[in-house]
Design a protein around this nucleic acid. Structure first.
Lengths: 204, 204
DNA sequence: CAATCAAGTTGTCGCTGTCAAGATTGGATT
DNA sequence: AATCCAATCTTGACAGCGACAACTTGATTG
């Protein structure tokens, strides 16, 4: 928010960012436009250009915001779970999936290499927040499997990340049966359970 | 091909489809346009409309073509592998990954629910070619795990598909280290190996 | 041979992202 | 306190886009 009737907006960058995120989930990436976002904020069609020289810059900023929320969602789930390796991994997976199904368009944007500019340090840093979670949940697994080397760590991360990431993509692209969450907002969908990779990798 | 100097093209639909597929991989989805495709084929900007009323119709047709090649790529790998469950599963995975990394833009298109119209029966049918492969490689695994029920089958398919699909997505979005294939064309990239899910699910 | 209709054409519309040039403002400097 | 200035926002313009309408072509068919 800012002053109302003045020529300058006050915090246009943040306003555009929030309006963009809202519009993205409302109408999808293809139907979204810089001009509509500007209009929604109440500003002329060329106003965004000073803050986001090109559409790609806005998408980058939106993805940054997304990665922050993404990591926070996983962390929140992990905080409610037992500290052991398997429950932590299940919790992170649950958060991963909840974020993807709750913000499908943003999720697709965040992981579409073609739409973003990863040479942007801000995006790189935001993305690393999610990677850190992955590292934390995979390290104990690697140890339990006797793969406590750099290579072993990478192997476990690749397997676990692939499974979670694929599950999320298949869910938002309607390739898996979805069931409504009992009473969640925003309208989060949770896919059916499937086999539990945590249990497979970490037998009792 | 068809006649050269006549008013009618002869097989414009197929020509547009092939030009579209070529342009998609050359410049990406965002930089592709109906008008450029039409120009490439040597036809006016409105000519495509009779064959593809809207851009989405062309994308649907391109995805159909993609699913055909997708299934064929997996089948080709499976044909070269031993008939046992684990080798077949590894072969299908290899084909899955080869297709995705060989045609990253097409792969993203095929699995982006909001770019396609899945109520189109042609797309539904093309997509099922890939699903059939998944079913074939997962069924023996479900049996070996004692999950030879409808529910068990679905669980195994979900786990296996998620892992392969996620691996493919992460690979084309540059989230996994890629190594050049020894001598493959088209320029196929293969990601690093990681843990072998087939070996985990099917211990000797 | 005439008629018909699918398959191309040109032309136009509103919308898009981007750029250029002018207007307005608030804060810093004298 | 007056002035300047740089950041911010506006208006206007441009080419390219998908879609639509009206017209032209030409092959097929009764």
């Amino acid at each position: 928010m800012a002053r109302q009737k003045t020529y300058h907006h006050g915090d246009l960058r943040q306003a555009l960012l929030q309006a963009g995120l809202a519009m993205l989930e409302e109408v999808g990436l293809e139907a979204m436009s810089l001009r509509k976002i500007a209009a929604r904020v109440g500003v002329s069609h060329a106003a965004p250009e000073h803050h986001f020289p090109t559409l790609k810059h806005l998408l980058n900023a939106m993805a940054c915001e997304g990665f922050g929320l993404f990591a926070a969602t996983m962390r929140a789930e992990m905080a409610h779970a037992e500290p052991a390796a398997a429950p932590q991994m299940r919790a992170a997976s649950k958060g991963y999936l909840a974020f993807a199904t709750g913000h499908p368009h943003l999720f697709r944007l965040m992981f579409n290499a073609n739409l973003l500019d990863w040479s942007d340090p801000a995006l790189e840093e935001a993305g690393s927040l999610g990677l850190a979670v992955l590292r934390e949940i995979c390290w104990p697994v690697a140890i339990r499997l006797g793969l406590d080397t750099e290579e072993g760590r990478a192997s476990v991360e690749q397997l676990v990340w692939s499974q979670i990431h694929g599950h999320a993509h298949l869910a938002i692209d309607h390739k898996l049966p979805l069931i409504d969450a009992p009473a969640g907002l925003p309208p989060v969908l949770v896919s059916s359970p499937g086999l539990d990779l945590a249990a497979i990798l970490l037998p009792d």
